[in-house]
Amino acid sequence: TYTFKVDNKDQAKKAAKWAKKLGLSFQIEKHGDTFKITVQ
C-alpha cells in the first residue's frame, strides 16, 4: 500500500490516472486543501 498527499485536484487526477494505468485500486480522500491518495 502506497500513500501520498497532493495539494490540488489536478495532481489527484494525475495520480488516479497513473493508478488506473497500472491496474491498481485507489482511494482519494479530501482533507481541506489537500488530497490523500491510497494506492494498493
Rank of each mutant, 00 (worst) to 15 (best):
T1S: 13
T1C: 15
T1H: 11
T1I: 13
T1A: 10
Y2G: 02
Y2M: 08
Y2F: 12
Y2R: 06
T3G: 02
T3W: 14
T3A: 05
F4C: 15
F4V: 04
F4P: 02
K5S: 15
K5W: 15
K5Y: 15
K5F: 15
K5R: 08
V6H: 02
V6Y: 06
D7L: 11
D7R: 13
D7E: 11
D7Q: 13
N8Q: 05
N8T: 14
N8G: 10
N8H: 05
K9V: 13
K9S: 08
K9I: 15
K9E: 14
K9N: 06
D10S: 13
D10T: 13
Q11I: 07
Q11V: 07
Q11M: 11
Q11Y: 06
A12F: 04
A12T: 03
A12V: 10
A12K: 03
A12G: 03
A12M: 10
A12S: 03
K13A: 10
K13Q: 11
K13V: 10
K13D: 13
K13N: 09
K13Y: 09
K14W: 11
K14L: 11
K14M: 10
K14A: 13
K14V: 09
K14T: 07
K14G: 04
A15C: 15
A15V: 15
A15T: 06
A15E: 02
A15S: 03
A15L: 14
A15Q: 02
A16P: 00
A16N: 03
A16R: 11
A16H: 05
A16W: 08
A16M: 12
K17P: 00
K17Y: 10
K17H: 09
K17E: 11
K17F: 09
W18H: 04
W18I: 06
A19M: 14
A19F: 15
A19Y: 11
A19I: 12
K20Q: 12
K20T: 11
K20N: 06
K20S: 08
K20C: 13
K20Y: 08
K21Q: 09
K21N: 09
K21W: 09
K21H: 10
L22H: 13
L22A: 08
L22K: 10
L22C: 15
L22R: 10
L22F: 08
G23V: 02
G23H: 06
G23T: 02
G23N: 07
L24G: 01
L24H: 05
L24W: 07
S25H: 10
S25L: 11
S25E: 09
S25W: 10
F26G: 01
F26Y: 09
F26S: 03
Q27I: 13
Q27Y: 12
Q27M: 12
Q27A: 09
I28T: 02
I28N: 01
I28R: 02
I28V: 08
I28K: 02
I28F: 04
E29K: 07
E29H: 06
E29L: 06
E29R: 06
E29N: 05
E29Y: 06
K30Y: 06
K30F: 06
K30P: 08
K30N: 07
H31N: 11
H31T: 14
H31M: 14
H31L: 13
H31W: 11
G32Y: 04
G32L: 05
G32M: 05
G32V: 03
G32A: 05
D33S: 08
D33F: 07
D33T: 10
D33M: 07
D33Y: 05
D33K: 09
T34I: 14
T34D: 07
T34Y: 15
T34P: 00
F35R: 01
F35T: 02
F35W: 14
F35I: 06
F35H: 02
K36N: 08
K36Y: 15
K36M: 14
K36W: 15
I37M: 05
I37V: 11
I37L: 05
T38A: 03
T38H: 05
T38D: 02
T38F: 05
T38E: 03
V39F: 07
V39T: 03
V39K: 00
V39P: 00
V39M: 06
V39Q: 00
Q40A: 12
Q40P: 03
Q40D: 07
Q40C: 13
Q40G: 12
Q40W: 15
Q40F: 15
